[in-house]
Design a protein around this nucleic acid. Sequence first.
DNA 1: CGTCAGCTTGACCGCGCTCAAGGCCAGTGG
DNA 2: CCACTGGCCTTGAGCGCGGTCAAGCTGACG
Lengths: 261, 261
Amino acid sequence: MPYHLIRKLGRYAGLSTVDEEMLRQLARASGWVGPRSDLLREGAAPRDVCVILEGWACAYKQLEDGRRQIIAYLMPGDVCSMAAVFPDVINYTTGTLTSVRMAQMSGRALLTTMDRSPRILRAFWLDMLAASAIQREWTASLGFLTARERIAHLLCEIMTRLRAVGLADAEGCFLPLTQEDLGETVGISTVHVNRTLQDLRASGLITLKRQQLAIPDFAALQEVARFDGAYLRPAPTARDADHPASLRSILDPVLGSAVCP
Amino acid sequence: MPYHLIRKLGRYAGLSTVDEEMLRQLARASGWVGPRSDLLREGAAPRDVCVILEGWACAYKQLEDGRRQIIAYLMPGDVCSMAAVFPDVINYTTGTLTSVRMAQMSGRALLTTMDRSPRILRAFWLDMLAASAIQREWTASLGFLTARERIAHLLCEIMTRLRAVGLADAEGCFLPLTQEDLGETVGISTVHVNRTLQDLRASGLITLKRQQLAIPDFAALQEVARFDGAYLRPAPTARDADHPASLRSILDPVLGSAVCP
DNA sequence: CGTCAGCTTGACCGCGCTCAAGGCCAGTGG
DNA sequence: CCACTGGCCTTGAGCGCGGTCAAGCTGACG
């Protein structure tokens, strides 16, 4: 069922067809959630791991005075609440942007599966690492890039991530974000997002109309954005591990004694 | 040897004296590294886990045109390169701010120790979670706080973290950062950092002279900063775990079937 | 006593914000 | 089929937060 997830994980760790089948059987699709509704409130302790099947969601923080900051995007194939397996401090809210269809996996069952297949464990691990690399990248982007660079950077990231799950082709992708969403992501006002997009359009770097994004020359946009997509393709360095018994058997594939394909 | 680390970890998971002794024997203090020198370049694959014993370091990203963004602070008791145990994508540089004395632990030995003491594993895990919560907090801070709020927020965070390792008392702490460092952290220019600090001083919120920070009324600063320190004290919710065999035995303490003291 | 790093201050500028009005759909109901 | 509505995008005008440039100050150190 979680097609996009399987596709993405496969890129990390090369899943076998058995692995893929295990994942498919693990996930049970649930219904649609409407746009702009909260999935997971701050402080929740999720029991299941959720995977986005269709639609976009995000994690965000909000102040009493209304200011809002989007912390992360959750797109098809992304895992919402790894906290159900590797407990996490959830001091942010997760909400949908568009309508969203999700799949649920019991944390326990996923754990069993990871235990059976080192490749699956490794792939999930690398996906978590990619997520935290994205977080660092956002920190940097907000810190030292200009508005124009930030928007460009975000679009590069989104394109790269969507490509990894087969939702973008060479030309472009579907982008269901409002300019307000973009503003709350890169820390600028809606009006200025608009002007910045105009600017990028005028420079021939992007086309964006009716939620359809096109990037005629990705390399050019990448340069404007100072974007280097390496952080989205994590692959631990080869390592001649010689680790102790039980943790070894668990983490070895994660530690990547074999180079990933 | 890693006194501050042990103190911090103890707050997470309640280490036994045996645990503490294991950690002490694991870490071997190494010499001093001068201020403003790089410890770990982008792309490195560290073999040892480093712990800061004294001094401050940071992780940062830098562009060719000189712009620099500090991604994280590493203070006494902080772990630099967990990548040696849980492999990570290192797409940033780690460098010292002041002179720094570190301790090294072989990744392998630490793994063995974690394997022997679930409390140690759990404590390290929670420390990693706290680090990623800080990262999210920085993203939000850079995104929607004003310069004044960001500086205040950063000072609150630093005070709280230093208190956890016994390096700050009720009044204040040592703060070895230049105004340039602060600027590169909260994304504003050095000149404006200066003016913002003046402003905070004028409001009676802080005193900062000769690297000595004092916060007469923490609650007041906290309010200005919109700071809520909960994210720095991670404690997974209690959970009636019933997990599969081997992963269970490893991750159970992490999963926190027992409430932490 | 000179030097140098870091702090401070002033003047000016510009990126990005706010407020406000208008335009463009897509969906809805008459 | 068309008027109406509401969400989103667009554009203009004016302002202010924070940037830049430049000079002077302060204190630690040799």
